[in-house]
Simulated assay, not measured.
Amino acid sequence: MAVTDEAITKIKEMLISGQLKAGDRLPPENELSDQLGLSRSSLREAVKALELIRVLDVRRGDGTYVTSLEPGLLTETMGFMVEIHQESSAAELLEVRRILEPGAAAHAAGRIDSRSVAALHKCLESVPPEASAADLASHDFTFHSLIARASGNPYLAGLLDSLTGSALRLRTWQRITEAGAAEAVLGEHAAILEALTVGDAELARSLMTVHVSSAERWLRRPPAEPPRPVTSSGPATPSSSVAPALPRRAMAPTPAPEPAARPMAEAPPAAKAPKETLKKAPGRAPKKTATLQVPAAPQLPATPQARTPAPQIARIAPDPAVYELFAMPSTPGQRAARKPRRPA
């Protein structure tokens, strides 16, 4: 144990044993150091530490005194710690308030007097219609503090006063005013006051639980973002204001459409077949040559994607005579007419 901690412990034992009481003056420094068996420097450090937590009151030129040791005075140190750690422990502090404040409201409902009720009514009516977040935070602290004091337990009242720092209350009410819910929260205050006035302890407990839980919810709510300015130069359109602009991507060149697959067999074009020329046999009269026509192929609807390919038979047999063999009908009389005659 450090020497300063040992000096603090010995002074605390003097307070607990009754050697020092609230409002007593400590012996001179040299006498107290000899009595405790400590050096003067260690005693000075201990006195400074106890002054910070409001146990001792050092009066320059008069001496060192024990304070009143009232609960509200001693819990000021906790309020100092709350102000320091409020960013990292705000949610935990509100959980403690949610546990303690409903009990304080229930106790206040059975012990509140007419003077405390009048003070609560005055606190609630003093809020202006267009109150700022700072004014609402000040009203909130006074309202809850009056209820805690009406519970009749000064230790509970001092503890609750120190649990919520001024900065934490201000940030909570900023969230509430940004969301436009200040009137609703003040309505919760009015409902709690009505339950206290009629002396309904369970109703006051329930309403206070809901009220502190809603404050915790507003504290966890992210701050409202200001509207973003429109930077477009042209007139705003509904589509441009709703749908965000998509990033442009490099467009690959569109490949040319491939020609459609050609059919395996097609009907020949509607054209007249060339007349077959037959040699005259000697001594015989020449016969009349038969002229046959190829029936026209049915017309198919043209497709917009591909052109009609050339006939396959015309590619294979470009000669008209051979083409006629493929294209003309194959009846027995027609085959006999197409068969070339050998010379006699």
Rank of each mutant, 00 (worst) to 15 (best):
A344R: 12
E324Y: 02
M78V: 15
Y65W: 10
S42E: 00
A245Q: 13
A314G: 06
T4G: 10
V127H: 04
Q35Y: 10
Q312G: 06
S240L: 09
K275L: 09
S151M: 13
Q293I: 01
A256K: 03
A256Q: 01
A148G: 04
G152D: 01
A224S: 03
R205S: 06
P268Q: 05
D24Q: 07
Q305P: 02
V198E: 12
A22R: 12
S116R: 15
Q305K: 12
A281P: 03
D24H: 07
E202F: 10
K287D: 06
P71Y: 15
G152Q: 04
A327R: 15
P28R: 02
K122E: 07
A104L: 15
L38E: 02
R262I: 07
S68L: 12
M81R: 14
P128L: 08
H121T: 04
S132P: 04
Q299P: 05
P301Y: 05
P102I: 14
E258L: 14
I11A: 11
D200E: 14
S239N: 06
A104T: 13
R111T: 07
D135N: 14
L163F: 10
M78K: 09
L193F: 10
L207F: 04
T209D: 02
S39K: 10
A119D: 01
I316C: 09
Q19Y: 03
P286V: 00
I192G: 02
A261Y: 03
M14G: 08
R171E: 15
G110P: 06
A302W: 00
G187I: 05
P257R: 11
A49V: 10
P235V: 07
P129Q: 10
A306W: 00
Q86K: 10
H211Y: 11
A260L: 11
P320N: 14
G79S: 13
E83F: 14
P154M: 04
E266D: 09
R338W: 05
L163S: 06
K12C: 15
G187M: 06
D140N: 14
I16E: 01
R221D: 03
R60L: 11
E276C: 02
A134E: 07
A215P: 00
L156E: 04
E202Y: 03
Q312I: 09
T331N: 14
G79Y: 13
V47D: 03
A281D: 03
T142D: 13
H139K: 14
L50N: 01
G187N: 04
R115E: 08
L163W: 07
K21T: 04
V117C: 11
R249T: 08
A119R: 14
R249P: 01
G165Y: 01
K122A: 02
Y155W: 13
Y65K: 11
A134T: 08
E13S: 08
P28N: 01
R205D: 05
D34G: 05
D62Y: 07
K48T: 12
G72I: 02
K279G: 08
G152Y: 02
E202G: 12
P71N: 13
L278F: 01
H85L: 12
L278N: 07
M208Y: 06
A281R: 00
I11T: 06
G63A: 09
I84L: 15
G63E: 09
Q19G: 00
A182F: 05
L74S: 11
S330W: 09
D34T: 00
A290G: 06
G283N: 07
I112N: 05
V3K: 15
M14Y: 01
Q174N: 15
K21C: 10
L43D: 04
G283T: 02
L207S: 01
